[in-house]
């Protein structure tokens, strides 16, 4: 394979894997923000909790990796409902500043708790044999784990698209994102809808955190460092839009990977520059409405 084509394939492949993680974590944030306008900066902390839970389950309790991921998703979704019912719901009608402060507070608490338990060194897990190694595609090989992430991501895109576009629940969510008052007045219980999407979104964040373990390595600063990327994806995609979140995750994931491949050292710029350029051209995001 010619070297240039090889680099392009690497960028697209790694970018796609990265984009899938970004999408999985961000989609819940986008929908909950679209529904209630709640600025949840603790979303990265939920993703981090999912990652650490996966670490503990596989290492200390000997749960297989995939099983650990599933348990982490369910556990974090359940925990998130507790937070939503006790803390978040008090601030639905409060100002954005209050929501930002509460969720920054939660993030700091989470960082402190996870530093206390796991220490500041990066944690990772041993992958099962069927996910380690490389897959030979004929013209070159690809790391199996990234192929797995892409597969999980694409499967989730399909499932979420179906749930969003083809079920009654999805129709209710779309209606509530479009116009909350109108949705309420035709009898949709938006509060319950929010709790549900919040739980699903946090569960997906936990899944993203678990998948990200092997890509980024999990440290307590994950909740802050990657939060910025999740927020970028949500803002660039447009609040409450599945299509937008996917498009934003792809654009930002691939641009970021390209930047890091092509301009080592200076590549960190690219993701911010692209995001700012898109937001300046389309303030409401790729698929948002003004």
């Amino acid at each position: 394979m010619p070297p240039l084509a090889n680099i392009v394939v690497s960028i697209l492949f790694d970018g796609l894997a990265y984009a899938m993680v970004l999408f999985i974590v961000s989609v819940g944030l986008s929908v909950t923000m679209g529904l209630m306008g709640f600025v949840n900066l603790a979303h990265g902390a939920f993703a981090m909790a999912g990652g650490y839970l996966t670490v503990s389950l596989t290492r200390s309790m000997g749960v297989p990796f995939l099983g650990a991921l599933v348990i982490a998703v369910i556990a974090i979704a359940a925990v998130s409902v507790v937070f939503e019912r006790t803390l978040y719901r008090r601030l639905y009608r409060a100002s954005e500043l209050d929501q930002v402060l509460l969720t920054i507070g939660l993030t700091f608490l989470a960082i402190a708790a996870f530093t206390w338990v796991y220490g500041p060194v990066p944690q990772s897990v041993r992958l099962p044999d069927y996910l380690a190694g490389q897959i030979d595609a004929g013209f070159r090989t690809f790391p199996t784990y990234r192929v797995f992430i892409i597969a999980v991501g694409l499967a989730l895109v399909t499932v979420l698209w179906f749930a969003f576009e083809r079920t009654l629940l999805g129709a209710k969510i779309r209606a509530a994102v479009d116009n909350r008052r109108m949705a309420q007045s035709v009898g949709i219980d938006v509060d319950r809808l929010f709790t549900l999407t919040f739980a699903v979104g946090s569960g997906l964040a936990a899944l993203g955190g678990g998948l990200a373990l092997q890509l980024f390595g999990m440290t307590p600063s994950f909740a802050v460092v990657y939060l910025v990327f999740f927020l970028l994806v949500v803002a660039v995609g447009g609040l409450g839009s599945l299509k937008g979140t996917l498009a934003a995750a792809l654009v930002l994931g691939i641009c970021d990977t390209a930047g890091k491949y092509l301009f080592a050292g200076a590549g960190g710029f690219i993701i911010y520059a692209v995001a700012i350029a898109i937001l300046l051209a389309r303030p409401a995001g790729l698929h948002g409405r003004d």
Binding site: L231, A235, G265, G268, A275, I276, L279, P283, A284, G285
Partner: peptide, 20 residues
């Protein structure tokens, strides 16, 4: 959210700039 994200990004761009 857009303002939050833009102000955050500006800061990180400066940090990257200093790093480059």
């Amino acid at each position: 959210l857009t303002l939050l994200v833009l102000t955050l990004s500006t800061t990180f761009i400066l940090q990257e700039f200093g790093n480059v």
